[in-house]
Write a protein that binds this DNA or RNA. Structure first.
Lengths: 237, 237
DNA sequence: CCGGATCCGGTTAGATACTG
DNA sequence: CAGTATCTAACCGGATCCGG
């Protein structure tokens, strides 16, 4: 038994010894979303020190929630994969999210807003079906931010289904411009409001390819209460 | 925003900042089970220091999960009551319990076993319906324990629905003797095995009033996967 | 008994830098 | 890319004490 054990033979107590430690639920969120690499996880939890991230991953491994596996074609690199036990933690993380959506602040404080965190999260987890016909370059313009982090470019490759993110001009022609503010985009991504509502209220402006315009409206139709995180349901199935 | 905030505008992250701190899930378990008094909570989490318990209750109050209210007829005494937000945490605690039942150790280590914790838990939360016809004194005999904590007496008053617990002979006639071992009783109470199975395998012996014998079989029919905790479902409804 | 507060030593987490 | 190392600050556990 671990050192700081609650010493209660109760499933709730024993589960919370593992799951309810600092950062662990957020880390599980990322693993359930499909992140497997150390540095991917690290970008998802930028305020967690790498030492602590490393320790938590070891703890989760010891608890049988993740295992490490070598990455194909990349020697000396490992990834962290959820076991069935880990996948079964989905309802725990989901119920936290449902409660959070209902009961914590619905208006993000400035301190909670972070364009880098948001854009990387979109890059990793945006579901781009239906696919664009050809490579799409989408420029996000956060009109409320200072120049150095106002503009972001998302490049969607329909062939590989890969998404790239740039914070400097990528050199490609831009197919669609999205002009909005960081608060609006963050709330949509996290499920606190719908893309359609913000668009109708002119807090989002779309300019460019109309076909792509229709598709991006679908990609950001996350109006199910949990934002982009609801996508995980099929990932653990 | 609290000091150690994750600074992520994500419902899961914001919820886990509150719920996923040391001891908090176990504390919520007790509050959801209906405990309201500081010392009741304290007995439920004997390994949590009173200072930390006090701090956690303050944190929960600040988060709008509990509120303090004066106790009727007892001046200068307050109790902690769950708000709707707090009651809505039931699915979080429940899903932790479901996962724990499925994935953590199903055989209690000796260090997890504690007769005092178990008997107080039974005293607080045993559902004694159907009621006994008259006051029932039930002696628990843990044959595997040393003399000083082998014998416990549970007194069930049908009038007041109150249950009393003694660790020394209460002086009343005993109506029913339950002879078993601590591991068996703990597993039954926590939902890891059924009373019926243990009884059929002679790991529980009942001696005394046959009417009471039938009733206690019902009281301990907790074969729903979460043990006595499943009772909470109706408490928060 | 009830509901905490205080003090102190050990553990954990954050910040930053560094390495193979 | 995938982590360690180091140092400091915050937190936790255990014991004791205190006012009603």
């Amino acid at each position: 038994m671990a050192k700081g054990s609650y010493k209660q033979f109760c499933p709730i107590a024993m589960a919370s010894e593992i799951v309810c430690t600092r950062w662990t639920a957020v880390l599980l969120r990322e693993l359930l979303m499909g992140s497997t690499r150390f540095n991917d996880l690290r970008r998802s939890v930028p305020r967690m020190s790498p030492a602590l991230l490393s320790k938590r991953l070891k703890d989760l491994e010891e608890a049988g929630i993740v295992y490490r596996a070598p990455v194909e074609n990349e020697p000396d690199v490992e990834e962290y994969i959820l076991t069935q036990s880990g996948k079964d933690l989905f309802p725990v993380v989901e119920s936290l999210g449902i409660w959070g959506t209902r009961w914590v602040e619905t208006e993000p404080s400035l301190e909670h807003l972070d364009p880098t965190l948001l854009m990387w999260d979109i890059r990793r987890h945006l579901n781009t079906t239906p696919k664009p016909k050809k490579r799409a370059t989408i420029q996000f313009i956060y009109s409320d931010l200072p120049k150095q982090n106002r503009n972001w470019w998302l490049i969607v490759e329909p062939e590989t289904e890969k998404i790239d993110l740039c914070s400097i001009e990528p050199g490609f022609d831009v197919n669609l411009y999205i002009s909005t503010d960081l608060r609006t985009m963050t709330k949509i991504w996290m499920g606190f409001e719908t893309f359609a509502k913000a668009y109708n209220e002119d807090r989002i402006l779309l300019t460019g390819d109309t076909d792509l315009e229709e598709k991006i409206k679908i990609w950001f139709s996350l109006d199910n209460g949990l934002g982009h995180f609801s996508r995980v349901k099929k990932l653990v199935a």
